[in-house]
Amino acid sequence: MRHLLSISDLTKVEAISILDTATELSRVSDGAVKKLPTLRGRTIVNLFAEDSTRTRISFEAAAKRLSADVINFSAKGSSLSKGESLKDTAMTLQAMGADAVVIRHSASGAAQRLADSQWMSGSVVNAGDGTHEHPSQALLDAFTIRKHLGMGRSDLSGINVAIVGDILHSRVARSNVLLLSMLGAKVTLVAPPTLLPVGIGNWPVTISYDLDSVIPHVDVVMMLRVQQERMSDLFFPNAREYSRYFGLNADRMARMKSGAIVMHPGPMNRGLEISAEVADSARSVITEQVANGVSVRMAILYVLLAGGALEVGGN
């Protein structure tokens, strides 16, 4: 595996091996060892053409725990915000000797453009491209679900997951639909019809417009961030109505299965898609998702960078 651009780049076996590697790495980082020499001498560039402090910090922590050199290249203060093309940026990174580029970009497909072009030779990790995919988030979500509900299984078979909210604009949802269903989970998308993409008839999911009917049957409720500006684009009447039908509040949480968990990729709009009591409840694994993010991203960097070019694919 040279790049991680989309969950569709992974086989089930590869996805599980990333989760297993993350499990071992989380033991390492839980214990006395804070720093591993594994990627010593490797240079990883965090190319963040779109603001995302948490994802950048997570990748940075992951890279540093593996002793890689990290260069942060953020939109603000970088030439990307001054109209420099992705191509010129990539060629600059190539000249700096980047072994891997972790890219966050507002354009869907930007990571793939970087990987497919001849502009640079390093590995590309998609840290969120437009409204396309966010594979490392899906992997950490799957990791978190498996840890809580996997009962020792390597996959997620038999687990019911509801993904609730703005599916149309969500890269987290796209990656999770692919990954969770590949791992055997049953995924239900819950959203107002305006926020479901046209053309998802062949997605391996069930569609519902009614959160209340879904809530009692699922093991995981994954809430998505709803951006306020969607209101002006007529996707829903106002925040109050959205919240009434698609928000996760204490009443709805009370009707969840025992043992069911609440997830959110962050940042949350407390009071809009999720109430404060839910976010801070015992069912919420939201802060744990953040912690798991580091282990999963270490595993991704390990799988992409620790092996040499020789014999890749030989195993």
Partner: peptide, 23 residues
């Protein structure tokens, strides 16, 4: 004690699965 992450020949081989370390 798994030593995979400490190997100096990682680049010369395909990625290896990490084994368990239990102290």
């Amino acid at each position: 004690l798994d030593i995979t992450l400490f190997r100096d020949d990682l680049r010369m081989r395909p990625p290896r699965a990490i084994m368990s370390t239990k102290i």
